[in-house]
């Protein structure tokens, strides 16, 4: 297991290195780095000073060295707009996004798995047909429009929930969290639902397909032939087998949750990294965009690692391979 972890973390660092290289050279090919990294509103002398400070007057490979050195030290430049290190800015907004993303994933799994299993076990029941139809719609509804509709119904027409913002937060270990206050929770619920519905539809489909397949397996019939209760058969023998694909796909989808959080946060004015990204793009605050990119790459790599570990915990058959043959 340890060897496996070390190897995986090595791979993760490699991917990050590759991405850093692409980002760096991408900035050169896509645009002039001076435009990207220097505040265009500064006067000429200040711009030249900044260029010298950032090493933009040096040859490209030397600059790449600076860039990497900065990266290793966690220095990704300073936001033009906020005049703060970009990485600090991003990290201060990260908890809001993570809270939203975790709640959305939890909703997707806790609601999606039971519904999908039901539909898989009783494919012909009217309720199953309704579940599957709803999942096609949930799957097809564009995320941002769905968010608007949630606002329209709950905030504008019925006026029961706020239309946007984060509401009151409580600091836990220095991290502000919304879900612990009633006001925060009321602000959290719509964006979380918005982010969850697509995943939920996906989970329903996976769980249904998995259940339909697993239910036909000999070991399920054998479990019944041993007189186990239906709750045990479905809740342990079927569930544990369908969780393998569900967790795999969900893990891969976590990246998508972060991506779609950009949309949801914009719709609900949720102060996370996604909203920050869109604002920064609008304000041409490029260091923040770069910092966002590096952070999400890091997050994705870590998520993939966690998924692989979860996978080997769930499926004993891959555990042997995990040990590094």
């Amino acid at each position: 297991m340890l060897a496996y972890l070390i190897r995986r973390i090595g791979q993760a660092l490699l991917v990050m290195g590759v991405m850093a290289t692409i980002v760096f050279f991408g900035l050169y090919t896509v645009g002039n780095p001076v435009d990207l990294l220097i505040n265009p509103e500064d006067d000429l002398a200040a711009q030249e000073a900044a260029m010298a400070r950032l090493g933009l007057d040096k040859p490209i490979h030397v600059q790449f060295g600076y860039f990497l050195a900065g990266l290793v030290q966690g220095d990704l430049g300073t936001s033009f707009v906020h005049n703060r290190p970009a990485i600090d800015l991003i990290l201060s907004r990260l908890p809001a996004t993570l809270e939203l993303a975790f709640l959305a994933m939890a909703l997707a799994v806790l609601i999606g798995v039971p519904l999908g299993m039901y539909a898989g076990l009783r494919p012909n029941a009217p309720a199953s047909k309704a579940i599957m139809a709803a999942s096609v719609v949930g799957f097809s509804t564009p995320n941002f429009w769905q968010g608007l509709m949630l606002i329209m119904l709950f905030a504008v027409f019925w006026g029961v929930l706020p239309a946007g913002g984060r509401g009151d937060t409580v600091d836990v270990l220095g991290i502000p969290l919304s879900f612990l206050t009633l006001d925060g929770l009321s602000h959290l619920i719509l964006p979380a639902l918005n982010l969850a519905i697509y995943k939920m539809s996906l989970v329903i489909r996976l769980a249904r397909a998995g259940t339909a397949e697993v239910a036909l397996q000999d070991y399920v019939k054998y479990a019944r032939a041993r007189g186990l209760s239906p709750v045990r058969v479905v809740g342990v023998h079927v569930l544990k087998n369908i969780l393998i694909p569900v967790v795999t796909v969900l893990g891969l989808e976590t990246g998508n949750v972060i991506a779609f959080a950009v949309v949801t946060e914009t719709v609900f004015a949720w102060p996370g990294i996604g909203k920050l990204l869109i604002d920064s793009i609008g304000l041409l605050d490029r260091p923040v965009v770069v910092a966002y990119l590096m952070l999400t790459v890091f997050l994705f790599v870590m998520i993939n690692l966690v998924v692989d570990i979860a996978y080997s915990v769930l499926d004993p058959r891959v555990r042997i391979r995990g040990g590094g043959k």
């Binding site: 070991y219 054998y222 032939a225 186990l228 087998n241 058959r317």
Partner: peptide
């Protein structure tokens, strides 16, 4: 259900497929 596995037990055809692989 109470009889199955207790008063009547069945041994399935394919030993490779009868035990749940993840338990």
């Amino acid at each position: 259900r109470r009889l199955r596995g207790d008063r009547i037990a069945m041994i399935f055809q394919d030993p490779m497929m009868t035990l749940n692989p993840v338990l």
